[in-house]
Design a protein around this nucleic acid. Structure first.
Lengths: 213, 213
DNA sequence: TTACAAACATGATAAATCCTCACATTTGCA
DNA sequence: TGCAAATGTGAGGATTTATCATGTTTGTAA
């Protein structure tokens, strides 16, 4: 009854907990592990994070860490998943009632600002999504997240432009969303002033596209 | 006359050869090392590339590898630098004589296609620029490259829109360029059909912005 | 030609990490 | 109360990067 990594040791794709904590005690310990990892990532980056340090800071043994996480990346992945869940909820509610161009401008602009500020303030998010491209599991999580977010945008666009080709809307929304992530990542990697300009330029560009036709 | 890694052992940023090969023999060996690394990256990705394998495939000892490259990332960096040098030359010549909107449309579209095809065909490029965000030296190289490419675009825009604010043009060009890299990276990570749609959508979006006002 | 310094080459091995595993302890429940 | 399942532990196996003392080759000046 041992759910090993199964058939293909393909690496990279699967990153779910090796074993779900069922007892109260262990659930708390897993929380401590994630908190420890989070603080270490904030301080040094996930690459420099050492499993030994995570265990020590969480007050557990190395073995316990591996009881619940199959490997190091799984810890980062677990943190990433929480962020995506939170942000999806936020985005969904922000776009829920948008039904005209002006409201879209408003809501979109606010969402971008929130995202930008979040990245400026949260070293953990910054670090996690940096590694996105290199780690297959993370890349897939981000793509799935981006598609989900794009769907919210598609719903709005369908209301604003009922006649438009659904596939085109889908493509536009997905692209705009990914561009936004790229724009914010770029913005935080240059100085603040230029970053602000880049984010503003992105907003204009994206809205022009979203409201086009 | 020995350009060591110098002053700050800050890590990450500097990745120049530990020692420049001066003799013919060693220059050839360094080429073999880079070729070996390149083929290994194509096969397995730079993360899975092992220094021992590089040495073996290049027909040199581990020690020789470290004679010319301070660490593993320096090898990847060296390959990346070659690509940027090549592509910059290509871009410069493509944009050199553009002086009206129609020509810009043409040249820009072609450049994006070239870039897209290159990424589809070259696993090494794909892999190298994937790690971009995680590796400080690579990120800086890419930013510098992107700025340089944006400059070519700025030169064109200044011709097309002489009255425009230079800083705004700079921002637009830089953003458009980075969006392009993001768009292509996104396009190659989904199926071909959707990728084509995304690249086409990016072109429209970028050109709309470049020719706006 | 010879001698010598600088460039180059080598690979055993130090050092750093990730992760496993055999065994100990705690918990929930029949 | 007793037992199976869940949980906890940390020494050590395995892998990999990078170093360094030592040996070899090359260019060159006398």
């Amino acid at each position: 009854m041992d759910e090993k990594v199964a058939a293909k040791p393909d690496q990279a794709a699967i990153a779910s907990p090796r074993r779900a904590p069922t007892q109260q005690r262990s659930r708390e310990r897993v929380e401590r592990m994630l908190a420890a990892a989070s603080s270490l990532i904030a301080e040094q980056g996930s690459d420099a994070m050492r499993m030994g340090e995570v265990a020590e800071r969480a007050g557990v043994s190395i073995g316990s860490l591996y009881q619940f996480f199959p490997d190091k990346r799984a810890i980062v992945w677990a943190l990433a998943e929480r962020y995506t869940a939170e942000s999806q909820a936020c985005i969904a509610s922000a776009l829920k009632d948008v039904s005209d161009a002006e409201a879209l401008k408003q809501a979109f602009s606010e969402l971008v600002d929130i995202y930008y500020r979040l990245f400026l303030a949260e070293p953990v998010m910054r670090d996690i999504w940096s590694g996105t491209q290199a780690d297959k599991a993370l890349r897939e999580l981000e793509l799935a997240d981006s598609r989900a977010n794009a769907e919210f945008l598609v719903a709005v666009l369908k209301r604003l432009r009922p006649g438009a080709d659904p596939i085109a809307l889908e493509t536009t929304a997905f692209l705009v969303w990914q561009m936004g992530e790229a724009a914010v990542r770029l913005a935080i990697s240059v100085d603040r002033e230029e970053g602000d300009r880049l984010v503003a330029a992105y907003k204009r560009m994206a809205l022009r596209e979203l409201l086009a036709e």
